[in-house]
Structure formats: C-alpha cells, structure tokens
C-alpha cells in the first residue's frame, strides 16, 4: 500500500494526464457528441505535435507564460505592500479593506469590455486586469497572517531591542510568509486565466489569441490541444510558486513536519 502510494505521489502528474486522456477518449468513443466537435485524443495529440514542430505554439506560450509570471510577481508584491500598509495604520487598513470588498466580487470578464473602452488594448489593459484580479489573495492572506503572528514571537523581538519596523521585517513578515504564499498560489492560477482572457479579447499574440484564431478556423483538435497546454501551464506555474515557497519558507515546513 505504502509503495503504491509513493509511486502515485511521484508520478501523479503523468498518471493524472493518463486518466484524463482515458476518460476523454471514452467519451469520444461513446459518441455522445458528434465527432466533428469532440475530436479523439490521438487527433488532439497530433494537432499539438504539429503546432509544436512549426514553432508557433512555443512563441505564443512563452509570451503568455511570461505575462502571467510578471503579472503575478507585480500583483503579489503589490498585495504584500498593501498588507504591510494596512498593518501600519488601522485607518488605511479599513480603507483598503473597503476597496477590496467592493472590487473583489467583480468578474474580470465583466470588467474587460468596459476597461477596453477606458484603457484601450495595450499593456495598460493587461496590467489593469491582471492586477485587479490577482492582488487580493496575497493581500487578504497577508493581512490575516501579519495579525496572527504570535505575541510570543513579537515580544521576544522586543526583548532583543528591535524597533517596530525591525520587528515587522525580521519577525512578523517572515512568520506570515507561509500564509501569504497560500494566497500567491491561488493568485497564480487566476493570473494565468486573466492573461488568457485578455489575450482572447484584445490580442496580437499569446495562447489566448491563438485559441481565438483556431476557434474561428474551426480547428477543434488544435483548440483542445491548446486547452490541455493551458491546464498544464497552470500546474507548472503552481510548481514554480511551490519551489519559491520552499526556498523562502522551508524552515516553516520543516517545523510543521508536513511535507508539501
């Protein structure tokens, strides 16, 4: 049992893909939906291979992934900055909370059509959309985590004669990092979605634009291949965040003795 579990743990991504491919193929063979709109798995893999060998998909993917990554870094930094600001002043904290309460429930897809009118189709639009949707999880987790730092730790810092800002930077922020990373992980997924949606709505390049073009050309196997690619990119982005988290907050995980 244990060996099987270890095996599953190690190969969970390929195993999972295999499972998804299997189910997909079964649905295809069952013929619930006309074949024209629901291509078989070999066709999708073939389509992916074609796009890979002519290089189009790689350029597009790099563009999209870099955008998501840059957006995520910007939004996470901004979120943490907002959390620290909130920590400094109760009035600011309340004020920022009002704004986040108001903006958070708004779907990006609702905002984009209006934002296109107000911000155009360029970098401004991407930056606005990505930051608008990605900034909240790191911010909210940051605020909660900074407040929840145990008084014992803070008092210890004070005993060593640390100033208020030193306590913030050297004691409370590191203590809050693990929880902030949970927020960043959630934000990673959203930032990828936001980039792709923006690329679909107003694009020159990237995976979102490519999906849009393929949809209009009725190349359904290409479309589904790209969707699988997006799904895997999400896993990759999550993996990157997890790596960074381990590098920065490894002490915390060792302390908690919980792998992951």
């Amino acid at each position: 049992m244990n060996a099987a579990l270890q095996f599953a743990e190690r190969f969970r991504v390929p195993l999972c893909l295999l499972l998804v491919f299997g189910i997909w193929q079964a649905v295809h063979l069952a013929g619930v939906v006309p074949e024209k709109f629901f291509p078989s798995m070999p066709e999708i893999v073939g389509a992916f291979w074609r796009m890979l060998s002519d290089g189009t998909v790689i350029t597009a993917w790099v563009t999209t992934f870099l955008r998501a990554l840059i957006g995520l870094i910007a939004a996470a930094s901004l979120g943490i900055a907002l959390a620290i600001l909130s920590d400094l002043s109760p009035v600011l904290s309340r004020g920022i909370r009002y704004v986040s309460d108001i903006l958070q429930p708004i779907p990006p897809a609702a905002f984009v059509p209006m934002a296109v009118f107000m911000l155009g189709l360029g970098t401004k639009l991407y930056a606005f959309v990505i930051i608008l949707v990605t900034v909240w999880p790191p911010y909210l987790n940051g605020v909660t985590a900074l407040q929840a730092v145990s008084p014992v730790q803070v008092n210890t810092g004070r005993m060593f004669g640390l100033s208020r800002s030193q306590i913030l930077w050297q004691v409370r922020l590191p203590a809050a990092l693990p929880e902030i990373f949970t927020g960043i992980r959630y934000a990673a997924t959203i930032s990828l979605i936001a980039v792709i949606v923006s690329e679909m709505l107003a694009g020159r390049d990237g995976i979102g634009f490519m999906i849009y073009k393929k949809v209009y050309a009725m190349r359904s196997s290409d479309v589904f291949a790209l969707m699988f690619l997006v799904a895997c990119s999400g896993v990759l982005l999550n993996g990157l965040v997890a790596l960074l988290r381990r590098a920065l907050t490894g002490w915390h995980m060792r302390m908690m003795e919980r792998p992951e």
């Binding site: 743990e9 999972c16 499972l19 998804v20 792709i196 949606v197 969707m227 990119s233 896993v235």
Partner: peptide, 27 residues
C-alpha cells in the same frame, strides 16, 4: 491514493479559463 493522483487534476481544472470551457460545456 485516488486523492494523490487526482490532485494535479484539480490544479489543471482550476487554470482553465471559463471562456475556453464554455463552448465545451455547450456541447
């Protein structure tokens, strides 16, 4: 064991943008 195998699936599904999913669901 099922949970371990399926957890990447949750990550994958979470990343698919709704505009890409909707045509599929419509089928």
């Amino acid at each position: 064991i099922l949970g371990v195998i399926l957890s990447p699936l949750m990550d994958m599904l979470a990343t698919l943008p709704p505009p890409a999913i909707i045509p599929l669901v419509m089928l």
